[in-house]
């Protein structure tokens, strides 16, 4: 019960990890990247992926790092959670990020990577039959997120709007 017992597991860019209560899991400074949390409410276990790119087929080299992409990252995370004894049908998702940090007049595809990441994440989740219970995506602000498997709440912090829970 309560503060200070668990540790905060940090997930870096293009990385992923899994925690169980009383620990929480966090990733900082999401811009166009998307933080994807897959969680099991009853088992109080959650995985977090910090996705950079929508599609692994965009990588021109051998995609060694699966967590970098929405499609391969979500697939790998589901595998990881199944190994921990989670049933696929009990998984739900919360997602945040996918901002456009800079506004340019040019319509270069790399500038619209935020919305494309969000779309790819949703598509991958749909394919796996995982429902999104909350999201805070788009806009033009950076986000830091932290998920607590005990409460299934996702804390989202931005510079201008402060902290909210979804």
């Amino acid at each position: 019960m309560s503060v200070g017992i668990g540790t905060v597991v940090k997930v870096g860019i293009a990385q992923m990890d899994v925690v169980t209560t009383p620990n929480t899991i966090r990733t900082s400074g999401l811009g166009s990247c998307v933080g994807v949390v897959l969680y099991d409410e009853r088992k109080k276990i959650a995985g977090l992926i910090h996705v950079m790119l929508p599609d692994s087929t965009l990588g021109k080299v051998v995609p060694g790092n699966v967590a970098k992409f929405a499609d391969t990252g979500i697939e790998a995370m589901i595998e990881l959670l199944l190994k921990q004894g989670v049933q696929k049908f009990s998984l739900k998702a919360k997602i945040a990020g996918g901002a456009q940090m800079f506004k340019f007049s040019s319509d270069q595809s790399s500038m619209r990577i935020g919305p494309r990441n969000v779309e790819a994440v949703k598509q991958a989740l749909r394919k796996s039959g995982i429902r999104i219970t909350a999201e805070d995506t788009g806009g033009s602000s950076g986000r830091t997120i932290e998920f607590d498997p005990e409460t299934s709440k996702l804390m989202v912090r931005t510079v201008n709007q402060g902290v909210s829970e979804i």
Binding site: A14, C33, M52, G59, M101
Partner: peptide, 27 residues
């Protein structure tokens, strides 16, 4: 060069914009 864009925000959110293009081919 493109016309520069400006953002006041978290360093990670800003700098990762430049890493996206590189991340297609490298880590």
């Amino acid at each position: 060069p493109t016309v520069p864009g400006l953002s006041v925000d978290m360093f990670g959110a800003i700098i990762s914009t430049g890493l996206i293009e590189l991340s297609h081919v490298s880590d």
